[in-house]
Simulated scan of single mutants.
Amino acid sequence: MKKNITYFGEVEINSPQEYNEGQIVIDNRQIKLDLNFYDGVPEYDWVAEYENYIKDLEQHKADVEAAIRADYEDGGDVKEYVDFHLEELDASIIDKVLVGTDASKSKEERLLTALKLKRIGFYPGNENYAVWDYTIGREITDLLVVVNTDSTGKINYVTWEN
């Protein structure tokens, strides 16, 4: 049976493809979405779970970004991500990344604000239901700040990875 899934279009809900692509515009930026069933299709109504999550996407995004800031301020993985890039990247590249950020703030703070949402991956049936990927620019670094939430939007953890 096919259903129209928000941002993904028609999807065979009982046997969807392992990987489904979608997109959304948030803050005038194109964000990649993917819906993943590598571990099989959950036995419960995953469509309702997804639609329930997506209807609160702006709130989830605000919560994710608050978690990124809190992790940074606590000296966690986000602070490591920022410090790593400030140490490893040429000053000229850092300057390009910082264009448009508040010049009255520290480079660390400015790099933190340069993090932009690139992708949200959904994994129905998994504890880490939604995976939010942030980057200072994929053309600059392969490393991402990653935030995982459960299906209600509760933050599971914040980390960085490639």
Rank of each mutant, 00 (worst) to 15 (best):
V158K: 01
N128E: 15
Q23C: 12
L57G: 05
E139G: 15
F37E: 05
N28A: 06
W132V: 06
K105I: 13
I54V: 13
E65D: 09
Y81D: 01
Y7V: 07
H60Q: 14
N36H: 11
K55T: 14
Q23V: 15
K118G: 07
W132H: 03
N128Q: 15
I155S: 02
T149C: 07
D95V: 07
E21K: 06
D150C: 00
I120R: 01
R29G: 08
K3I: 13
K2Y: 13
E21C: 11
Y50C: 01
G76L: 01
W46A: 00
I140F: 11
A66G: 12
F122K: 04
I120S: 02
E51I: 06
I26F: 13
N4W: 07
I26N: 11
F122A: 04
D83T: 14
A91Q: 13
K107D: 02
K96F: 11
D83G: 12
R29S: 05
V41A: 13
V131Y: 09
E43K: 12
A114H: 01
N52Q: 13
L115Y: 08
S92P: 00
S151R: 15
V41D: 10
L115C: 04
Y53T: 00
K79H: 15
D83S: 11
I26S: 08
N28V: 09
K118D: 03
V145E: 05
R29V: 03
I140R: 04
T152A: 02
H60P: 07
K3E: 13
T135H: 02
A114V: 02
K32C: 12
G100A: 12
A103Q: 09
I54Y: 02
I155P: 10
N52S: 14
I155D: 01
A67E: 08
E12D: 15
E51P: 00
E12I: 04
E58S: 12
A66R: 10
G75E: 12
D102R: 09
D71E: 07
V47R: 04
L57M: 06
N126D: 14
A62P: 10
V146L: 13
P124G: 00
N126M: 03
A103H: 01
N126L: 02
I54K: 04
N156L: 02
A103I: 03
E73M: 15
S15H: 11
D45M: 06
L117F: 02
L144T: 00
N52F: 01
E161Y: 06
Y7F: 07
N156S: 10
L115H: 00
S15T: 10
G22W: 04
Y53N: 02
L143G: 06
D74V: 01
A103K: 05
P16H: 10
A91L: 07
E109I: 10
K107W: 03
V145K: 03
L33I: 03
E12Y: 08
D74S: 12
N4Q: 14
Y72H: 09
F84E: 15
